[in-house]
Simulated scan of single mutants.
Amino acid sequence: MPTLIGSVQRALRLLEAAGAHSEGAPAKQLAREAGLPLPTAYHLLRTLTHEGYLRRESGVFLLGDAAGRLAGGGLQQKRRIMILDSLAHFREVVGAPVYFAVFRAGEIEVVGVSDTPEMPAVREWADFRATGHAHAIGQCLLAQLDEQTRRDYYARHPVEAITPYTVRDLRALEQRIAAMGRMQPVIERQEYVLGSVCAAIPITAGDTAATMAISLPLDQQDRLLYVVDRLRSEVGALLSSLSFSISI
């Protein structure tokens, strides 16, 4: 194991050295900057090139596509951590589970959820992506789409009742969407799961439909409007930390 860890450390030093030269650098220079014997550097450079982390052009080594993907993955992970930290902060502010979701590539995607054992999130008993008509998150996202995009979604995920309170059919859902005020919260009571009420707020994030949402147990529904208003008052601060997450 120590030998393997040492090899990884040496390889990373070579990648760091190569990354410092936008136009590439020869093996001898990279070995010197990484503090490695030349034979060791040659062996690792060949391996890194074979795996796509480096590429060799005209006698110099440059970062390859795999290194770019590695860096991008690290950036995405950092973004996701920032999102979850932000959601946790606002969960404490509003005193309820907080959700962040987007409509991407034709589907509803819940990017992050923050809850606690004392404030549990709604259990996903029916696929959130396929039941957008039945929950506040989905209704809020669908209301931000053009009619054709919505109909494409309905063609894949037909409107059907999943509780006694779910909107009954496509016509009724479209009538509800048409009546929604721009940038107004969407409220849903027991339409997705019995015993829960939810509210979602549309978020402006470039061309992407996005939403922040909260949920409460049915016996706390008298708090719903207060909680969602508290969340709306924080939207400006939320955007500064969450708008980048569309690229996740």
Score class of each variant (00 low, 15 high):
1 M>Y: 15
2 P>C: 03
15 L>V: 03
15 L>S: 05
17 A>E: 11
19 G>A: 01
22 S>V: 09
22 S>G: 02
24 G>M: 02
31 A>S: 04
31 A>D: 06
33 E>L: 13
36 L>H: 04
36 L>N: 04
39 P>N: 12
46 R>K: 10
53 Y>G: 02
60 V>T: 13
62 L>N: 12
64 G>W: 13
64 G>A: 15
68 G>K: 15
72 G>Q: 14
76 Q>V: 12
76 Q>C: 09
83 I>K: 01
84 L>R: 06
85 D>M: 05
93 V>W: 04
95 G>D: 13
96 A>E: 00
101 A>T: 07
106 G>S: 08
107 E>Q: 15
107 E>K: 14
111 V>S: 02
112 G>Q: 13
112 G>T: 12
116 T>W: 12
116 T>M: 08
123 R>W: 09
123 R>Y: 11
124 E>G: 01
124 E>L: 13
125 W>Y: 11
127 D>R: 01
137 I>L: 06
141 L>H: 05
146 D>M: 04
158 P>H: 10
160 E>I: 01
166 T>M: 04
167 V>K: 02
169 D>V: 06
173 L>W: 08
174 E>P: 03
176 R>W: 10
182 R>H: 05
189 R>F: 07
192 Y>G: 04
195 G>Y: 11
199 A>M: 08
201 I>N: 00
208 T>F: 10
208 T>Q: 14
211 T>N: 09
214 I>Q: 07
220 Q>F: 09
223 R>E: 14
223 R>Q: 15
226 Y>T: 15
228 V>R: 10
230 R>Y: 04
232 R>H: 11
237 A>Y: 08
242 L>C: 03
243 S>W: 03
246 I>A: 03
246 I>E: 06
